[in-house]
Computed example of a mutant assay.
Amino acid sequence: MDPRRLQLLLTLSRLGSMRAVADAHHLTTSTVSQQLAALAREAKVTLIEPDGRRVRLTPAGRRLADHAVTILAALDSARLDLDPHAEPAGTLRVGGFATGIRVSLLPVVPELTARYPGIDVVVSEYEPVEAFRLLVDDDLDLALTYDYNLAPAALSPVLEAVPLWKIPWGLGVPQQGAPEVGGQADISAYAGQPWIVNSRNSADEVALRTLAALAGFTPRISHQIDSLDLVEDLIVGGYGVGLLPLGRPTMAGVTVLDLADPSVVLTTYAVTRRGRADWPPLRAVLERLRPPSGPLPTRDWLRPFPGSYPG
């Protein structure tokens, strides 16, 4: 089977429209239709069927699209294996959340580019959902993402993720009237408070709603904020409470209480397309992004960086 036709089928499974496939691959709709018809003849099965004015994959078409993920990844890997020891060179497109870039990527870039001057690292800031979409569309080579244990991210089958490091989160509340620092939070005591969540990613809201459901209440989401510093301003002003990383220095008037049963833990990941990790520039970066040999410090690791949500 022609891998170019398999790629068109895979794109159709994702976009659901012949026109969208044609636009994505800079082809005419007629050409896409002809190529998929040829693929159907090669496979000796019907791959698409009418669905009103559109088309949809048949069950056989969906199965072949699933196989296409593995086949195309294997072909990518095979191409890279032809010269696995090549000097790393080329533009490496990295996207991710701000803290992940600061903590995991930027410290390794000077040594990397000094050793391999042919590598050009281009960095963009994205939330995980944005980064996943760009990886699937092959518009990024590496994404630094995160999720919470109570809100795990769902990866496309064309992607693979390697965990990097973890940090626990707690409940940020006004210091006045809060339990002593180090005490565990009784989240139900704040059931009637307005709650603050991230404006650019829904993962912390999912984690919060899970915590609240286990405690027997539904949180009233009043504020959606991208900056942790602004979250703290709202907490100090009495405008609400929200999840904050434990160990991060906070402004006066804010206390971060431990959460347990369940706890909330943020995990960061290096995410790539399947079959791409051996591309020399990407491999050179991934080797330097390995998890630290010892435990990640839980205090002051964010101190040099202005506060922002993990995104």
Score class of each variant (00 low, 15 high):
R4W: 07
L6T: 05
L10C: 10
T11K: 05
G16I: 15
S17I: 12
M18N: 03
A24V: 08
H25Y: 11
H25M: 08
L27V: 12
L27H: 11
T29H: 06
T29N: 04
S30D: 03
V32S: 04
Q35L: 10
A37Y: 09
L39A: 07
E42H: 15
T46S: 08
I48V: 15
E49W: 12
G52Y: 08
R53V: 14
A60S: 07
A65H: 08
A65S: 12
A65R: 06
D66G: 09
H67W: 11
V69T: 04
I71Q: 07
I71T: 12
L72K: 09
A74F: 06
L80P: 00
A86H: 04
E87N: 05
P88T: 02
T91Q: 12
G96D: 00
F97D: 01
I101K: 00
V103P: 00
P110F: 04
R115L: 13
G118W: 14
G118Q: 05
V121T: 04
E130A: 14
A131S: 05
R133H: 11
L135K: 08
D139N: 09
T145M: 03
L150S: 07
S156R: 14
S156A: 12
P157T: 15
V158N: 08
V158K: 13
A161Y: 04
A161Q: 01
A161C: 02
G170I: 15
G170A: 12
Q176S: 14
E180W: 04
E180D: 13
V181T: 14
S188D: 07
Y190K: 05
P194E: 07
W195C: 11
I196L: 11
N198Q: 09
S199F: 08
L208P: 01
L211H: 13
A212K: 12
S222L: 02
S222E: 07
D226A: 13
D229Q: 13
V236Y: 03
L244S: 01
G247C: 00
G247V: 01
P249R: 06
P249I: 05
A252L: 14
A252H: 11
G253R: 15
G253H: 11
V256D: 05
L257K: 03
P262T: 09
P262H: 09
V265A: 04
R273P: 01
R274S: 01
G275A: 10
G275R: 07
R276D: 02
L282D: 02
V285C: 06
E287Q: 13
R288D: 01
R290A: 00
R290N: 00
P292L: 02
P297V: 09
W301L: 13
P306M: 14
